[in-house]
Design a protein around this nucleic acid. Structure first.
Lengths: 230, 230
DNA sequence: TCGAGCATAGTTGCATACAATAATCATAAA
DNA sequence: TTTATGATTATTGTATGCAACTATGCTCGA
């Protein structure tokens, strides 16, 4: 792993953790001294973050961390509703028995965790859920589709959403996973796609609802029409 | 415009023109001396080309120009069939009168050119067609959707396809443009999406057919399962 | 004759110094 | 008081030299 790779991941992590606030500038020299790298790998990392859409390059003024508005989140869901069903449509024709077993195991674990009701369990579910979707993307076997999804589905956004699910929504989501697996076992592309579509639309609904119930701590952000991403 | 920008465009152009063959390496030092830049802007340009998907970075071995297989083309069409209808679905709700007029003018010009039947006219149609689609993307007003399309729709591929249309296919394509405009005038998102879907599937059919009718000059490429991109 | 290991060459990866550019602030004139 | 203009400063953009790494070919041993 090169220095540029390391710097890339460090900065990305900081953006996700809120270490760098939206709108703030990431200076090449500043972070370079802090991490004890020269500006060269920092520059490369920032360029990659720009093309990933995490920061925007202001010519001769630096790299600014982008802010997420409610509108951005809606845009992403609109695209996920198109692309994620396509993932399972392809997966239905290509998935292996081994992959189906893996998906089943992930669904088992998620269901077990969803019995409990604490923060740690929810975190666990979020991780497993990401693995579930990653396995589906692998089974879909389309590098371009994978890249498009990686481009738009910023992990923290979808991950955070789990924390705002009601108990009912959580169970519904678990049901979806089971049904997706059944559809894939039957090699039924359209069935799988239909459930995945519902799965994403349900996630969107939860996210949209959360939009309303903002705590006082987020008032400033709301004023700027921005969202916490971590 | 910075040196890195210039280098980026030069290399990209050369890849499109066939100056750099698929599979060949673009050496930082070599092209640096040739264009009389240091390696730094060259590196940056190559990194951008990597993230655009034009070249792939082999660690410690250089940037290799990627080759397009028939399979890649199919993958792209599969995604365009999803995304381009979404463009007009959004555009139907947002497009302005001015933009509708612009689209109408572009359709006029394309139809006029399609009366003729020489290479230059076909080139002209290709350019106008790109403008037509670009106008639709603008009207859709979704930066992310725009970025995804720019990522996957490599202009030369779709552009070349026009040259392989039969007379009938060309007229059909012109009809599609007209009907898309009518659907947008009626603010009918699903009508517009349906026609756009047909439009892309028709383009795919033409492309797939062309796969069969390869000239002797392309035998070597065919042997490697690669396609001309320019 | 085959394989393992080592040397070497060629390429990218990184650091540092310098150049260029644009924003900001102060100052002066209208 | 406001605006324009120029100096200054902060920041990115570029060049160059050196370091690190990988692949390749050669040599030596089995």
């Amino acid at each position: 792993m090169t220095a540029a790779d390391r710097v890339y991941h460090i900065i990305k992590q900081r953006i996700l953790n809120g270490g760098y606030a939206a709108g703030s500038y990431v200076r090449e020299a500043t972070i370079g001294e802090e991490l004890d790298y020269s500006r060269t790998p920092i520059r490369e990392a920032l360029r990659r973050l720009v093309s990933d859409g995490w920061v925007e390059a202001i010519p001769h003024h630096g790299a600014r961390v982008v802010g997420w508005t409610q509108h951005d989140v809606e845009e992403v869901f609109e695209l996920r509703v198109l692309l994620e069903p396509q993932v399972v449509r392809r997966a239905a024709k290509r998935i292996s028995e081994t992959q189906l077993i893996t998906l089943g195991r992930l669904a088992d674990q998620m269901e077990r965790l969803s019995q409990q009701d604490d923060e740690r369990a929810t975190d666990g579910i979020a991780v497993l859920n990401n693995q579930f979707h990653a396995e589906l993307v692998t089974a879909a076997d389309s590098p371009r589709l994978q890249r498009l999804l990686e481009t738009i589905v910023q992990v923290p956004v979808s991950r955070r959403s789990f924390h705002h699910y009601t108990r009912e929504e959580l169970l519904c989501s678990m049901q979806h996973h089971r049904e997706i697996i059944r559809a894939l076992q039957n090699r039924d592309a359209e069935w799988a796609a239909a459930i995945m579509r519902a799965h994403i639309l349900a996630a969107r609904a939860a996210q949209m609802r959360q939009k309303q119930t903002t705590t006082a701590a987020h008032v400033e952000r709301q004023r700027n029409n921005e969202l916490s991403i971590s």
